[in-house]
């Protein structure tokens, strides 16, 4: 019980309270403690990233081991992982001559043009990552055609605001209302788009932001006061 419940609860409350106080008391010892906690957090976050990678390999490995459906593709994942990890961790692997005056040192080697890690980042990671997101353009277009229906007042307002913003932000759309004389220039589509996202949008977003902020504050308080214990697997 001590290891499972009380120690993590003590860590959470102690770290939470000290961090909170360090906002108001930036002087030592509390300020210094808060600074150290920031450093610790960043280091622990790095371990979490490595844990994530280890977990992925464990899952993909078990998929191969148990010959689950499409297990062959898991080999691709693991091979991709191993090659990237090896060339990333081993600072001696190079694909060409180092620039003059540059020594091979661990750490900065990952962003050298001669590093195979950099090559993988630029020619494998970049196109894959960018194209995955670019696919969304097609799906957003498809959704525009098939799903966005002006069924009621709310949906109509949403669609109209979307259309005005879309047209108002590009010169081709702005051409539609360029003919308007200056006297009614405020009705030009780019002006209306600017107005929508500066005022009504800001109002809507602010309401959401304030709502979320109050939610975050209350959740944080519940955590720091030890009321919220769901991370311990408790209700």
């Amino acid at each position: 019980m001590l290891l499972k419940r009380w120690i993590p609860l003590f860590i959470l409350i102690f770290v939470g309270v000290m961090t909170l106080i360090s906002w108001f008391v930036p002087h030592d010892p509390i300020g210094g403690l808060g600074d150290n906690f920031s450093q610790f957090f960043d280091i622990i976050a790095s371990f979490a990233i490595i844990l994530g990678a280890a977990n992925l390999i464990k899952l993909q490995g078990s998929k191969i081991f148990r010959r689950k459906r499409n297990w062959q593709y898991s080999i691709v994942t693991i091979v991709g992982f191993i090659i990237t990890a090896v060339v990333g961790i081993n600072w001696h692997i190079t694909m060409g001559v180092l620039p003059e005056g540059f020594n091979y040192i661990a750490g900065p080697h990952v962003n050298q043009a001669t590093s195979p890690f950099y090559w993988i980042w630029w020619y494998i990671f970049t196109p894959l990552s960018a194209t995955m997101y670019a696919l969304l353009a097609f799906y957003v277009a498809s959704a525009s055609y098939r799903a966005f229906r002006a069924r009621n007042l709310e949906a109509t307002i949403l669609l109209l605001a979307g259309i005005v913003v879309m047209l108002g932000r590009v010169p081709l759309g702005q051409m539609l209302t360029n003919w308007m004389p200056d006297a009614i220039g405020f009705l030009r589509i780019e002006r209306v788009a600017d107005w929508i996202y500066t005022y009504p949008n800001a109002a809507g977003q602010r309401a959401i932001m304030i709502g979320i902020a109050l939610g975050v504050v209350s959740t944080s308080l519940r955590l720091i006061l030890g009321i919220e214990k769901s991370f311990l697997g408790e209700e």
Partner: peptide, 20 residues
């Protein structure tokens, strides 16, 4: 890139109108 951006926006607006 703004020309392509503009045409694509027009096409999507057209999709919304035709779809509705």
């Amino acid at each position: 890139g703004m020309a392509a951006q503009g045409v694509a926006h027009m096409v999507i607006v057209l999709f919304i109108v035709v779809g509705n």
